[in-house]
Write a protein that binds this DNA or RNA. Sequence first.
DNA 1: CGAACTTTTTACAAAATGTTCACCGATTTT
DNA 2: AAAATCGGTGAACATTTTGTAAAAAGTTCG
Lengths: 227, 227
Amino acid sequence: MAVKILIVEDDNNIADLLRLYLEKENYEVAIASDGGKGVELFRRFQPDLVLLDLMLPVLDGWGVCRTIRAESQTPVIMLTAKGETEDKVTGLKQGADDYITKPFEMREVLARIEAVLRRSGNVPEKNERRLVFDKLIIDMDSFELTVDGKKIPTPPKEMELLYHLASTPNRVYQRNKLLDEVWGFDYFGDTRTVDVHIKRLREKLEGVSDQWSLKTVWGVGYKFEVV
Amino acid sequence: MAVKILIVEDDNNIADLLRLYLEKENYEVAIASDGGKGVELFRRFQPDLVLLDLMLPVLDGWGVCRTIRAESQTPVIMLTAKGETEDKVTGLKQGADDYITKPFEMREVLARIEAVLRRSGNVPEKNERRLVFDKLIIDMDSFELTVDGKKIPTPPKEMELLYHLASTPNRVYQRNKLLDEVWGFDYFGDTRTVDVHIKRLREKLEGVSDQWSLKTVWGVGYKFEVV
DNA sequence: CGAACTTTTTACAAAATGTTCACCGATTTT
DNA sequence: AAAATCGGTGAACATTTTGTAAAAAGTTCG
């Protein structure tokens, strides 16, 4: 479920440097070395954010940016040479979400990326990762499940699954959807896996409250039901 | 985690004077000598408060203030020449939180800073690098760890790690985050390193109190848990 | 009812993750 | 210069979690 970032940059040194730091931060990174490849990879890789150099062979940054904008809302951060102030304006007009001038500090790049992702709403806010129901607290900050006042040790996958279901109470999720959204789109595994995790969650949660429950929707999937 | 203050001031004498006093009060200080650098440094340094001269080269104080306001809630204190009363009004309209007229008394500046910080509520503690729990004192001013009344010699990295974790009790930190925040974003090393330091801390801390402990959150990271 | 299909449960193996230890190199202290 | 300290690495080992397969139980519908 890592956040995916596409770097479109013809200077290998810069691209590699960016990749190095981004991968350390657990981003999933892809690199395109010219504008044409950038667009192609954008479609295949489906990144959550694009770092886009302005000066590019084949198709320049503006062109890439326009194309991306025409096809999606994916946020774009422009990388521009110093002092090209007009570029900034133009870039932002073309739909870039932010711009960074070279040479840049990695710390700044990382900060901007986080800011843009937060703004774009794709990454949950810091303090919103806590759900409270009758006798049940699902807290993803402390990674704790509190049932009837007691902390119940719960493995990561179960926490994530429960959090996911409970984030939208009463909505039914198909097993496939859950595998995509909790395990990650690149996870290939049996849908029975979901069942087993539901089972394990139910052991922890059964009979605690009549306000809510993990319901099976026959032939469809599961939901976290709230009365 | 000292409180960070950014000074934007083109007069070196004044800037240095301010820095001198502020650092003596344990603030972390950065200085920018013109408006453009001010904005840039604001983004990188991410200060908790900005001291902003009105008369600046490149981009004047108002412009800087507007930019800061557009991007954050960070409090701004304006430094204005005497008698520029209209400036006061304008400055406050642009979003400044307070203003001080030159020439100023350092005592007054410090008082205003504390007042603004307190009002902004963004800074939990005043300026204290000292955490106190049951039978445990983590003091980063003297770099001393006091466990059950006894001073336990503790290397810097362990102190910093413990301090970091204990600064936000119960919050889980991923190993990656800890490496970024304690070791520095440009540190490339194995995440096992964190484990080893946790181990060494645990040797010093285990069984001391039932009020708190260094907990492992399986599959996620570590936290300093308090009951 | 019984066939076909879906879900639950169990048990186990595989994979992932965490702990600990011994040791190395750099730095500081004696 | 020797000794001690510190920060970090890699490997062995321990533990927990996760996935799978298969049996058991439940549901639907002709």
